[in-house]
Design a binder for these strands. Structure first.
Lengths: 260, 260
DNA sequence: AGGATCAAACCTGTCTTACAGCACGACCCT
DNA sequence: AGGGTCGTGCTGTAAGACAGGTTTGATCCT
């Protein structure tokens, strides 16, 4: 079991030193990606054990773990105690981490995130209107109805608000839009719920609900242009309320919580 | 130096087992994020050495490395041989990895990526028109001029095409849009260059160049609506050409290369 | 036959110790 | 001033060990 020791030494002599992509950990990463591709692995499928991989490659297990931690951090695999790693489906948490990191180092602020969220959700909603299934249209109508009876229960309202946006993303049929919307949900969910109970039953919330209802009507009607216009109205209203005179302190606290 | 051994044992007894977020590696991650926040570290700033961190936390160095590999994979830090890790600026490579992983496991295809790219670049271009600086407008004009004299040199043309899109993203003033566009550039650059030399000096390329020129004129004129419309025409044309009868084989090869 | 229990095997998370090689700054020489 | 050398700081990796979680198959009971 000495698969790599000799070629690696030779490679080092010929190239005179460390080459980009030549670390042992990077080799493990390449091996695992190749293994996944060659075997057509799909989310939920199991990988070989760390010990097996280490033996097969002649690399020590801690380095295999480092490589796998990298793949886990970018969402390709999922590691768990006592179980072999599995292939993981695309999800929003990775992008959430990336964005939160950027906020942490002061390169991005909540306004940037909100602006991108607005751009993306407006961009995708026409697709949702065009592509939604009957079941998705019915689900959107059900959600907006649940929201209507929760105008005095803001946390409950927010839960359905989240579902509404996720269902819209799902209706686009593009997993990447789903990932983005999921990331936004995770980023904004805390700041939307902390200390915002006072939003219940306000004129603002009633107005937001009307905008939601209009939006869903456009989706049901498969009217992409109307959907785009309705989503614009919805976000412009939400942004004005969120960043207007009343809310900054609350968003500021949320931002700090996001940095902890 | 026994900072964690006792509280960790106590925590384990009270909670009756492993709790989410309670792994040693996760503790290191939390510690480093806190360190970055408390010290206001910015891109380029150095972190303590692995050995120092391990001593400070009473955790073994391989686990510190695992944690740091995770943070490196999500773009917060950058690790290098012989040097302490540094805080890393936001960049597109992370998202590129995420998307390529999703393609690798068959959850996303090139069409999804292109569709999102279209949606996002159209969404952002109005912002670019509104916010661009005089220098950025001049740069865009210079780029489009450089493209005009490279209609018979496709690889050269592509280089400036990339710069054009990156400059537009920069003009939005939103780092998140820059990250997205950078990721798209990296994902599509290979498939755009492999075996596509035959595109040089074709009627298609001339048409694309005219669309580029129209687009830049709208940016220079600070006309957000015209910019949005021009970008739509540009992408609709590009997508029709890319996914039309002539190109599928080439894109298919690029996709396979992406999976290697 | 089906369900519960238990032991063994498989597996991950972490630690310790050690060594090879890279990066950087101080110092010396030309 | 510029280049070379050396020492110190630092990362990348290996080997071996142990604690504890998960899975699987055998056995027993109803």
């Amino acid at each position: 079991m000495r698969p790599l020791s000799e070629p690696n030494e030779l490679s080092r002599e010929l190239l005179g030193g460390r080459e980009a992509g030549e670390s042992r950990a990077d080799r493990v990463i390449a091996h695992l990606r190749d293994h996944i591709a060659r075997n057509g692995l799909r989310p939920g499928d199991r990988l070989p054990s760390e010990t097996r991989i280490a033996e097969d490659l002649g690399i020590s297990r801690p380095i295999v773990r480092e490589a796998m931690k990298t793949l886990a951090a970018t969402g390709l695999i999922e590691m768990a105690v006592g179980r072999r790693a599995t292939v993981s489906p695309l999800e929003g948490a990775i992008l959430r981490n990336v964005i939160e990191n950027a906020v942490l180092i002061g390169q991005v602020d909540v306004g940037h995130v909100m602006e991108m969220r607005r751009g993306i959700e407006i961009a995708m909603v026409g697709l949702a209107a065009t592509r939604r299934s009957d079941a998705q249209a019915a689900e959107l109508q059900r959600i907006v109805g649940e929201m209507a009876v929760r105008l005095d229960d803001f946390p409950g309202y927010i839960d359905f608000d989240v579902r509404l946006h996720l269902t819209l993303a799902e209706a686009t049929g593009n997993p990447l839009y789903q990932m983005l919307v999921e990331a936004f949900r995770q980023i904004f969910q805390r700041s939307m719920t902390v200390g915002i109970e006072r939003w219940a039953a306000t004129p603002e919330l009633h107005r937001v609900q009307r905008l939601h209802e209009e939006l869903v009507a456009t989706i049901v009607a498969r009217d992409a242009d109307a959907a785009t216009a309705a989503m614009q109205r919805h976000f412009d209203d939400a942004i004005r309320v969120m960043f207007g005179a009343i809310v900054p302190a609350s968003v500021g606290r949320g931002g700090e919580a996001d940095r902890s």
